[in-house]
């Protein structure tokens, strides 16, 4: 396990190095002055610019510039937004929890629905139930998320006025910002209308989370199906049925556990896909998350925000990736002495 951890840390370090290099080079690739792109100080006076160029070492070699950029990032200074002139680290700290909340709810939904369906499909292999589930999976996998979002709004918010179509919570409720994850904040607060607020916030999150969950959910169906089929072929399952265990006992005691381990390995990979879907869905549902903010900053040519947004989002995805790797290794001893990272 120690070697495994060291390998992962090595990979993590290397990836961070590449990601910061990428985001550092973006300030040169974007149109305009590199110093202004990286700091976002578009209204700075000549004296301030002089100070800035000293702190970012623009006169020195490119390597020294990169080192000073790293120092700025490590001290939490991601520059200020070109359009709103507020520090980007503050904006991201405000917005990222909302995206985490939405994507986590969607991930849980996708797993809770997709994995059992996949298991059912595998158990009824090559029967009508299997074919129906697979066809649904194919359509869910192919459906464009923005279209699905619009249809969901049309059906569930306009034709049947069941669920709200935009925002995170009704404006009537005032929730103090503690963790930033709204549902937890509500439970922590000592508001008299706590439960009404909680209901309202959950009504707001259902629709976008379902829309995001469709595509990853169908991928989980396929993953669960193939891993279950693989497990059912193995000799320990045959041994269990030779011992006289009933089919249900085999499925619940042996097959499900072993196939779940294989699925967990893919959760990290699916997360990147899920974040992409969340970005588009945030735009449609006016969810105050980092995806909508990032797309808005492209419309506004806010290069500082794009640069830092990319860095933060990909770091976040990568951290989730590494975490699932650890969970997988903790559950499956065979993965620990895998030589390749």
């Amino acid at each position: 396990m120690l070697i495994f951890t060291l390998r992962r840390l090595n990979l993590f370090f290397f990836t961070m190095l590449l990601l910061t290099l990428l985001s550092f080079s973006l300030s040169f690739l974007f149109p305009g002055n590199a110093l202004l792109n990286v700091s976002g100080q578009i209204n700075a006076s000549p004296e301030q610019i002089l100070l800035l160029s000293e702190s970012y070492k623009t006169e020195s070699s490119i390597f020294a510039q990169y080192i000073s950029y790293l120092k700025h990032i490590l001290s939490g200074d991601l520059g200020i937004s070109m359009s709103s002139q507020t520090p980007i680290s503050v904006e991201i700290a405000d917005l990222l929890p909302a995206t985490i909340e939405l994507s986590m709810v969607a991930l849980l939904l996708a797993m809770a629905i997709g994995i059992p369906l996949g298991f059912i499909a595998a158990i009824k292999h090559n029967k009508p139930a299997d074919n129906i589930i697979l066809s649904i999976a194919m359509i869910g996998y192919s459906i464009p998320v923005f279209w699905l979002g619009l249809l969901a709004i049309l059906i569930f918010s306009i034709t049947l006025p069941w669920l709200p179509s935009a925002g995170q919570i009704s404006l009537l409720f005032e929730i103090k910002h503690v963790t930033g994850i709204q549902l937890i904040d509500i439970l922590l607060s000592d508001n008299a209308y706590k439960w009404q607020a909680f209901q309202n916030a959950s009504a707001h999150i259902i629709l976008p989370a379902c829309v995001i969950a469709v595509a990853p959910g169908t991928i989980f169906i396929r993953l669960a199906r193939s891993s279950m089929l693989e497990v059912l072929e193995t000799s320990y399952i045959r041994a269990a049925s030779a011992k006289g265990l009933t089919f249900n006992q085999i499925i619940f005691h042996h097959a499900i556990r072993n196939s779940l381990v294989k699925i967990i390995r893919h959760v990290g990979l699916q997360f990147a896909n899920l974040i992409t879907l969340a970005m588009i869905t945030e735009v449609i549902f006016s969810w105050p998350g980092i995806g909508r903010w990032l797309i808005d900053s492209i419309y506004q040519r806010d290069y500082t925000a794009i640069q830092s947004g990319l860095l933060v989002l990909s770091c976040f995805i990568f951290i989730i990736h590494i975490l699932t790797d650890f969970v997988y290794a903790a559950l499956n001893p065979m993965a620990r002495d895998n030589k390749h990272a």
Binding site: L11, F14, T15, L18, L19, L22, L26, L29, F30, A272, N273, I275, T276, M279, I280, L294, I295, I298, Y303, I306, L310, L313, S314, I317, F318, H321, A341
Partner: peptide
Amino acid sequence: HFLDVVLSIPSLLLAIIIVAI
């Protein structure tokens, strides 16, 4: 390693960054 990093960034996010450039 470079491929791993590029593949870990969501494709649409990467496309959006390139379009921004």
